[in-house]
Design a protein around this nucleic acid. Sequence first.
DNA 1: CTATATTTGTTAACGGTGTTAACTTTTTTT
DNA 2: AAAAAAAGTTAACACCGTTAACAAATATAG
Lengths: 201, 201
Amino acid sequence: MGIAERKIRQKEEFRTSILEAAWLQVLSDGWQSLSIRKIADAIEYSVPVIYNHFENKEAILLEFTKEGFQKLTDHLEDVKAKHEGPANQLEAIAHAYWDFAFEHKEYYQLMFGLGIPACEQVNQIIEMKSMTMVMISTIKDAIAVSKNKEVDFFLKYHTYLSILHGLVSIQMIQKGGQPGKHDKLILQDAVSGFIQSLILK
Amino acid sequence: MGIAERKIRQKEEFRTSILEAAWLQVLSDGWQSLSIRKIADAIEYSVPVIYNHFENKEAILLEFTKEGFQKLTDHLEDVKAKHEGPANQLEAIAHAYWDFAFEHKEYYQLMFGLGIPACEQVNQIIEMKSMTMVMISTIKDAIAVSKNKEVDFFLKYHTYLSILHGLVSIQMIQKGGQPGKHDKLILQDAVSGFIQSLILK
DNA sequence: CTATATTTGTTAACGGTGTTAACTTTTTTT
DNA sequence: AAAAAAAGTTAACACCGTTAACAAATATAG
């Protein structure tokens, strides 16, 4: 019964083509201007077919959010593997995080609800938890080699992520475009301060 | 010619009533669901009269953004005046900032574009610059009494604000409601780390 | 005090949006 | 070939921001 398989495959392809058309829209005009109707127009189908594949518009955005967290996680894991020692790794991860945010601005804005009415349950996305795991494990390693081993790793993780997200989002608000060298100095300053207080305390 | 004055006063009152109706909408259903039509309905006038007082919807939101920065600035100045020494002041300001964000969530979301397609020129709002001044002056004071007086105060300001905004916005994304005691520990941890590295370096 | 000008407000529309019910066409199964 | 199921379309509903065209109220000038 290859014909049932073909049907499933075609359905999958359809779904993918919706996402592709949507992503092109997002890339060219920002996710703000993404609309079901424009997607339908791009794939040359009528509007309601989209609802056969996605419950609503939010579900489409959610797909990209997951994709974004997956890409970010992969990226962070790569970078972590290329560095030795938790302190170096935390620093490298911070820079990788920053680079990802500005290289994939659309993803980042979706992931952290910068302008989106869809950020209610972002924390329940498992792809986000993968990212959390990478960061937490590195922080645990850092605590293990630090003076004070009684430090609350979850608190430190939260602090670490907040610093990174704060730097990125303030940067994105203040300037639309790519950040300069001075802006990376700020990152360097904040992160090295965090690592210092984590290791040497 | 008191009649001209009355006209101006009435126009002002009208403007205020628009803002009041809008704010009630924002408070009850969030700014996402604010619409010109609902405002018109609330003040019992037809839609186009609103455009005699505000260029567009964004202008109304901008009004609240300014208001928010003004309130925050006042609050921070108050708190600063109640504390002695830049280190204590920076810590107190951080807590005041945090408290403001969660006591006036709607303001904060507007001010920092958490879900708003209107955050292009937030940095050009003079009310924001007032807030910046409060923070920068305190940081300059801190640098003046620190070991290393060659520190870049603007870099440190940026770091400081990023940490605060990062903490707040991550908190707002992860939980909708009010933060608990544990969450304030994170703030305490991050801010004291920042101050330490600023003073003792 | 009337006639003209101006301000003030309204209705109705334009072009969008997400979403869905009802219908038609195509495809599959019996 | 007929009946059932799937796929796709049209057309609508209920919103949205914004604006042009028109009517009513008010102020100004003669």
